[in-house]
């Protein structure tokens, strides 16, 4: 077998990798915004809960969280498919990092903007929705872009909970066909190409948002 013969299997795995990345990213995005804003809430209890969530998911390893969702949750009565468990675990993990990005971006909006909103009699919720968050968005995109690429790489861990992603496909090929060097090299290259493509995509997205600082240097 040659490199070319490996490609179909690997590319099928790559599709699963992309699917997992997109799904996890969606979960992470929602979690980031919700938790990030809750961390800035007036209510101390809500802020506390959000803080605990962030520290727990940032403070423990992603792989440990994956194993927990895959092995332990079923024992507690929560039966999820491997993909669901994996997407949830990665989404919650990256959501905790993303929530810090949201929080920092919102806090970085100049105080004058909040004061102008008060002077114009905006309610706090309206001020956040129309004035503060749109401005924070521009600052959030570059770090989110980096997190997305990290998420892509993290999906490789899903192979360890039986998900047929690119890494899983590679491992299976090696176990069946050998050619260790070629297969693992191909894996690295395919991930690299995907990461580069994702990076370009994020740069294009950043250009669309008014006020965003677009980093031209490739990662």
């Amino acid at each position: 077998m040659t490199l070319v013969d490996f490609l179909p299997t690997l590319l099928r795995g790559a599709l699963v990798t992309l699917e997992a990345t997109v799904l996890s990213a969606a979960v992470a995005l929602v979690v980031s915004v919700v938790v990030g804003l809750v961390r800035l809430s007036r209510f101390r209890v809500l802020r506390g809960v959000a803080l605990v969530y962030v520290e727990v998911f940032r403070g423990t390893s992603a792989l440990v969280q994956l194993f927990y969702f895959f092995f332990v949750l079923p024992l507690l009565g929560i039966d999820l498919s491997p993909m669901t468990a994996g997407v949830l675990a990665l989404g919650l993990n990256f959501g905790s990092y993303g929530s810090e990005v949201v929080r920092a971006a919102v806090l970085n909006v100049p105080r004058g903007q909040h004061e102008a909103a008060v002077a114009l009699n905006y309610s706090p919720a309206l001020a956040m929705r129309r004035i503060v968050f749109p401005q924070a968005l521009a600052a959030m995109l570059p770090p989110f872009g980096n997190l997305l690429i990290d998420l892509l790489k993290a999906t490789s861990l899903l192979s360890l909970i039986t998900i047929g992603d690119l890494t899983f496909a590679g491992k299976t090929l090696v176990q069946g066909q050998g050619h260790v060097t070629e297969v693992y090299s191909l894996l690295l290259v395919i991930y690299f190409v995907m990461a580069l493509a994702l990076g370009r995509l994020m740069q294009a997205a950043e250009r669309r948002v008014p006020g965003a600082v677009v980093k031209e240097a490739a990662r």
């Binding site: 004058g112 903007q113 004061e115 102008a116 002077a119 009699n121 004035i131």
Partner: peptide, 20 residues
């Protein structure tokens, strides 16, 4: 609060226009 505060407006030293 807003029903009373709405009667007051302010112009700031550093304008504080919404940049977006």
């Amino acid at each position: 609060l807003r029903s009373v505060r709405g009667k007051i407006g302010m112009v700031f030293q550093h304008f504080n226009l919404f940049p977006h």
